[in-house]
Write a protein that binds this DNA or RNA. Structure first.
Lengths: 174, 174
DNA sequence: TCGATTTATCTCGACGTCAAGATAATGAAG
DNA sequence: CTTCATTATCTTGACGTCGAGATAAATCGA
């Protein structure tokens, strides 16, 4: 039970400005969606900073992480990787090229489908991602320190509701 | 009061995979923060699609919107604009250049500060942004249709808590 | 008033992403 | 078996963003 709410964020100001300028419009959708976008941008900056100390780029982490959590043998197709990371196929090809050049993944033809390719995490890649991930979790925990456990759960559940339509409907290849 | 929760999103699967692979780590921060990032990416795609029909880019909209809601005389400095849009100064210079070339804004020296510049929305820019904004709100309302009014408010409040530290502490110039 | 610091904007090269299209293999239908 | 639609990956060029640094004006302090 919290009683104080004197604190404003940028979105409060933004919404107030719109109400002033366009009182005819109902801008309440911004209360949620602008906050999601802005928070995501701030988080991305934090991630960048966190990874810098591990000499890793945030796009590298996204790919390596997907492979890592896939479990043995830490191998996925480019298609699976692009669905996990929400980037286009061209972007994923490019990312895999560079990760392979850095020795963090290997690429081999899929023996079951001659169109396909399989990307596998190397021991070096595994080591890198594990270190960075532990650090990221530590930092993310701090960012969430302002919320009680049950608030975090409530927040997660609400976000899930918004996310489900995206994650189910389209198996978008892009 | 809702009892059903059979529905999973991609983050549920992602968290389950991590628990399998690294049971020693507490990955609950991902429940919130991965969802924010992923949702933001999906929203960005939606925005792109929404603006396409108005023949407008999403970066253009961000700048024009900031000017529009500032009210008469619809004029802000590049510094104010970059803080509103969370981009770097180099990016903002570039954006203003292109918007000015398109006739949607004008740029003039700040009479009060010879280092400064003032960017003003033109009538054409105003017209464009008003049309696009109305459309965006309509689409965003649909995205939120899965949540009751009070759920949206709760969600907004929780997000605000996470956002406040970013929006207060740093007046980051970048 | 002078020098040092801060603030505001711009420049430029490196880089990552996207969109569209190319290639090639697979799967489905008759 | 042949044709057609689909799927998987890669190629390419255009584009927007970032980061670092340059310039110049304003502000602060002794």
């Amino acid at each position: 039970m919290t009683f104080s709410r004197p604190v404003e964020d940028e979105v409060d100001r933004l919404v107030a400005a719109w109400k002033q300028e366009r009182p005819d419009l109902d801008v309440t959708p911004l209360e949620v969606l602008s906050r999601v976008s802005r928070l995501s941008r701030h988080l991305e900056r934090e991630r960048r900073a966190a990874f810098a100390s591990h000499d890793m780029e945030s796009w590298e982490f996204d790919v390596l992480t997907a492979l890592r959590r896939a479990g043995e043998p830490y191998e996925l197709s480019p298609g699976a990787l692009l669905r996990a990371t929400l980037v286009t196929s061209g972007t994923m090809t490019n990312r895999i090229d560079r990760l392979a050049a850095a020795g963090l993944v290997t690429r081999r033809p899929d023996p079951e489908d001659r169109r396909g390719v399989l990307v596998r995490l190397t021991p070096a890649g595994m080591h890198r991602v594990d270190a960075a991930f532990a650090d990221l979790l530590r930092r993310e925990r701090e960012l969430l320190a302002g919320l009680e456990q049950h608030e975090q759960q409530a927040l997660a559940a609400l976000l899930r509701t918004l996310l489900v339509p995206f994650d189910t409907s389209d198996a978008a290849t892009h």
